Amino acid sequence: MTAQVRWLDGEEQAAWRSFLDSHQLLMSKLDAELREASPLGLTEYTVLVRLSESDDHALRMATLAADTGLSRSRLTHIVSRLEERGIVCRDKSPEDRRGVQCRLTEDGFALLRETAPVHVGGVREHLVDLLSREQIEQMTSIFTTVLAHMRALPSRSGRTPAACPGPVAPRSAPDTQT
């Protein structure tokens, strides 16, 4: 027996489409601004932020993939490019020596500090400063609910994804918020 489809009504469809379109355009704009001002794109910047927020500025590759929502394959390609530029390095995980961890280098941390104002400025200009405090609170509530739901779902491997760090200031870093 086929389940009955619960189609979106007009208001739900408008909400979904406005989210989808604005997210796509916002991410493209933030990526373009970063690329114009630095050697980083938004995905690379996100990887560096996650590393900067972790102990010793290092994470296992599997954890970093889960935290950024990237496939392991795509993350490996991105990390290889960053490693060639001296922004990150990879070494054996100190926990079990079988896993590989990615570490933010001093040059990578300096680049992140230099690039963060560009990203934060874009986030403010294209999102935060357009909204009232009440709308920011509503957005936080909405996406905290969605994020908790998505993190609770099993991954394709059948495992629940690793918890990602929240939007906290990186340890020993100036505001490099994602």
Rank of each mutant, 00 (worst) to 15 (best):
L51C: 02
T160V: 15
Q135W: 04
T140Q: 11
G158F: 02
G121Y: 00
G10T: 09
L147S: 11
V5N: 06
P39W: 03
L75T: 05
L20Q: 11
M27F: 12
L51D: 04
V120K: 08
D67G: 04
A163D: 12
E83W: 00
W7C: 11
P170G: 11
L70W: 01
Q135R: 07
Y45V: 12
V49S: 04
R90S: 12
R50K: 13
F109M: 14
I142M: 07
R17H: 07
Q177I: 14
R156I: 14
L59Y: 00
G99I: 00
G121H: 01
G86V: 05
K29A: 15
G122D: 04
D31V: 03
G121A: 10
L82T: 06
L51H: 03
H149R: 08
L130I: 06
D175N: 13
S18I: 10
A110D: 06
A148W: 05
F143S: 09
P94N: 02
T176W: 00
S141Q: 13
D91N: 06
T68Q: 05
T140A: 11
R97V: 14
E11I: 05
Q24W: 07
L147Q: 10
V100S: 08
T76Y: 01
A116D: 01
V79N: 01
R98N: 05
L51S: 02
L131W: 07
S73A: 14
A15V: 12
P167F: 09
S132M: 06
P165S: 11
R124E: 15
E44Y: 03
R72N: 05
A58M: 08
A37V: 02
G41Y: 03
R81Q: 12
R72Y: 01
A110V: 09
T43D: 05
A110R: 09
P39F: 03
V47N: 00
T115V: 09
V146D: 02
L75Y: 01
P165W: 11
V120A: 15
V100L: 10
D96M: 05
V79Y: 07
E11L: 10
A110N: 03
D175H: 03
V118L: 13
S18F: 07
H23V: 10
R35P: 01
G108P: 00
S141P: 02
L20P: 00
V5S: 07
L30S: 04
P167Y: 04
P174I: 12
V49L: 10
S54F: 07
T144A: 08
P170S: 15
R85L: 14
S157D: 13
A173T: 08
A66I: 02
R103D: 00
